[in-house]
Every structure is written in structure tokens, then in C-alpha cells.
Design a protein around this nucleic acid. Structure first.
Lengths: 210, 210
DNA sequence: CGTCTAGTTGAGCCCTGTCAATAGTAGTGG
DNA sequence: CCACTACTATTGACAGGGCTCAACTAGACG
């Protein structure tokens, strides 16, 4: 199912020259180690970048949402797999020659560079969280992060299951669940359902998350 | 103390157009949050990129060694501090206009982009380690990482104190020390002194480090 | 030799992981 | 509508890995 791309969001300055691809929940977009043949832009939905260990441990390096570019780390050995978290549509930009993005069309090149800087910063921030924050602090930080993506003022919808959150935060599902329960007891959040919650005290959450 | 730069290492294609700066151990090159006015290239020595929490917790996001570029994340809020780990010399490239590096001279631009991709990959790898590896595994991974920088076939010199290693690996000095002792007991390493050790079984270390 | 810092080692505790049971939630079919 | 299944999430009991606190050791330097 391939057709012309509509321009996804105001924040991206990319032209609608790519082709659109749809993915069902849990579907693999790019297997682990497989080189990216395209730069990909998410129209809607969510993608996780995850890598596994020989013994089954799993790590999620990032979640990408609508408007995010990914597939930038072309030709990297040991590149992380990219999987759709939920129903997801992305635009594929053929990237035959941008491995030095310096020579891509000027707009795309600049956008890629900016994304790359952002990725770096996010990865360091993620590492900082994993290195020095306690479980509750990590969960609070994650909620704040989700809130930044969210359009609603204090409502957050978690697109991913607890296992994904755990693998992103370097915890177990049980600990994630317990931390959410703790934040609820402290009346910093309230759970409408397992996947939907309200942030009752955002500044307190921000303070906890370091 | 400023003078013309000598070309640092074969692996960098940058011309010697910058000025050289020397730093003593522990000296701050760039304070936390301070914007980088230069792209910096290390000639010799070692630099740590570290950030602190309000309560004193510290995190080291990366160590940079000879031949590494840093100061790429210009104008970022909350940028990490850059400090000399030991006696260090760096070349400063004035970077007045490369905040979109796309418009820097072609060589520098490409080099910066390549460095950025590498930084991203390293940061994700670091996060993966912090999220899912046990203490001994982290220490083993760190030794392997140091070994890659090292010129010697199985000798590793640790330029940084235990506290820096701990803050890089998300552990405490005591745990780092205990893990080194454990690896020694398993005869995977031997300690010539606190800062200098031999890797006796590199493939086993690599296996441990995931 | 004394002092200072860095590193190691030990004892005890706590946070988080593990294992197991329970409770929701969605889907399917009678 | 309920029954049944399958899956996801929550909660509890317990154990263990890593942190805290403290003592000790090893170098470096005057």
C-alpha cells in the first residue's frame, strides 16, 4: 500500500516527495542490524527503537512520534530494530546518496542535521536518567516526556504497554506498575485506565524527575 | 597560551587552522550550560562531559580522547560541562557560523556530521549498558571500551579516577572497586597498579559485557 | 615520619528484581 | 447477557545486588 505523502506537520519543512507506508501494531519496520534504505518521517502513530541481548534482555533506545524523523543512522552495524508500537503511518524518503547528508538537497540536509543533534541530546538525557535516577524518578520523567508530546494540557495517553516502558526505563513491568501506584497515592497523577492518566501536579513531577 | 595547531592525528582530515589551548587536570573547559563558541579537537589527553543534579548526584555522559571532536552541541540549553581529566591539549576551531554545519567548509562540515552520527550511536550504546547490564558487566564493557582507545595490545591505562568511572557507569566507587576485584579473582584482568591493568582474557570480557 | 588523597574491603540495609497469585480488559461465541 | 479464553496490569512475599557507612590500606608529597 503505497501512495503520495501528504505533508505531515507544520514543524517539518520537508516536501511531500516520499511514499507512504502503513504498519500494524507490533509490526517490524526495520529488523535489528538491517541498514536503513530510507529516511523515515512519522505521520501518525509511534515507533520504538529497540535492541536485544543474547539472553533475552531487551532495551528500548527511543520512542518516535508524529513529526519525528528516523532511520538516520544508515549503514551502522548493530543498528537497533524499528517497530510500530501502534497503528502507524510513515513517509519514506529514498536515501540512496545521503550517507553524507551534506550532499542531500539543502532542506532535507538541514533537517537531518537538526534531527541528529536532537537525537544526540535525547540519548544523553536518557543515559543520564538511567545512570542516576531512582525508579519513581524515572517513571515521573517518562510521564513528563509523554506530556511534552501530548496536545492535551494535563492528559497523557500511553500508546505502549508496560513492558515497553520498563525496557525504556531500565526497570521491570512490576516496578513500573508500583511506581505509578506510588505516584497515584501521592496524588501526583490519577489513572483513568491503564493507558490513560491525568497529571495532577506537573511541577512536582518535574521536580521529582531531576 | 595560544599558538598554531599541529595536525593531531591521521584519522582527522581537518586542516591546522585552529588555535591550541592547554588544560591542567580537573580544569573546566566549558561550564555546564555555557554555549560552545568553538568546535574542539583533542590533540592529547582526555575530556569528560558531565552534568550534575541539584542534590549532588553526578553523571558523566562521555569521555573524549585524542582525535575526538567535541563542542558540537552548540547553543543547547542544559549542555553538559566539559572538563579536562588529565593534562590535555585541544585545538579550537572558531565556529561563528556553523550552527547549521551545512554551511561550514565542506571538510569540516562532513567531519562534524560523521562525528555527530558516532556520538549518537555511542550515547545509545551507553544508555543500553546503563539500562540492562549488571555492575560487573558494565565494568567489563568499560574496560573493553578503554582497550579500543588504547594502542597497546592488552594493557589499559585508566586516565580517570574511580569516581569518574562510577559516574560514567551509574555505579558507586565501591562497586567499581569490587567488580575489578571480582574480574581479578576470575583471572580476566590483573592490576599492575590502580590506574594500570592488563586484560588477560579479552574475549571473555567481551562476552560478559553483552 | 606524618599528612592527605585515592582506592579497597567489610557489614548491614534498602531498593528493585524475581516469582507467584490476583484482577482487570478485550474479544469470541453460545 | 454470560461464559470462556487470552492477555495485560496490579499486588504481594521474598531474595539479592548494589548502596551506605565505616574502617583500613596504599601511594604521593613535604
Amino acid at each position: 500500500m503505497i501512495r503520495r505523502a501528504a505533508l505531515p506537520r507544520a514543524e517539518t519543512s520537508l516536501p511531500a516527495i516520499g511514499t507512504v507506508q502503513h504498519y500494524a501494531p507490533q509490526q517490524t519496520i526495520l529488523a535489528e542490524g538491517e541498514p536503513a534504505l530510507h529516511v523515515m518521517l512519522i505521520i501518525h502513530g509511534m515507533v520504538r527503537s529497540c535492541s536485544s541481548f543474547a539472553d533475552g534482555r531487551r532495551f528500548i533506545g527511543a520512542f518516535y512520534g508524529a513529526g519525528d524523523l528516523f532511520g538516520l543512522e544508515r549503514n551502522q552495524i548493530g543498528a537497533a530494530a524499528k517497530e510500530a508500537v501502534c497503528e502507524t503511518s510513515i513517509v519514506l524518503y529514498p536515501a540512496a546518496d545521503w550517507s553524507d547528508a551534506v550532499h542531500a538537497p539543502d532542506d532535507l540536509s538541514r533537517q537531518i542535521f537538526r534531527s541528529m543533534v536532537t537525537r544526540c541530546e535525547q540519548a544523553r538525557c536518557h543515559a543520564r536518567l538511567l545512570a542516576r535516577l531512582h525508579a519513581v524518578e524515572r517513571v515521573a520523567a517518562f510521564l513528563i516526556e509523554c506530556h511534552l508530546r501530548s496536545a492535551m494540557p494535563s492528559r497523557v495517553t500511553l500508546e505502549m504497554p508496560r513492558q515497553d516502558i520498563a525496557d525504556y526505563l531500565g526497570l521491570t513491568v512490576e516496578t513500573v506498575s508500583r511506581c505509578l501506584a506510588q505516584l497515584k497515592r501521592q496524588e501526583l497523577i490519577s489513572l483513568r485506565s491503564a493507558r490513560e492518566l491525568d497529571l495532577l501536579n506537573i511541577s512536582a513531577l518535574r521536580a521529582i524527575s531531576g
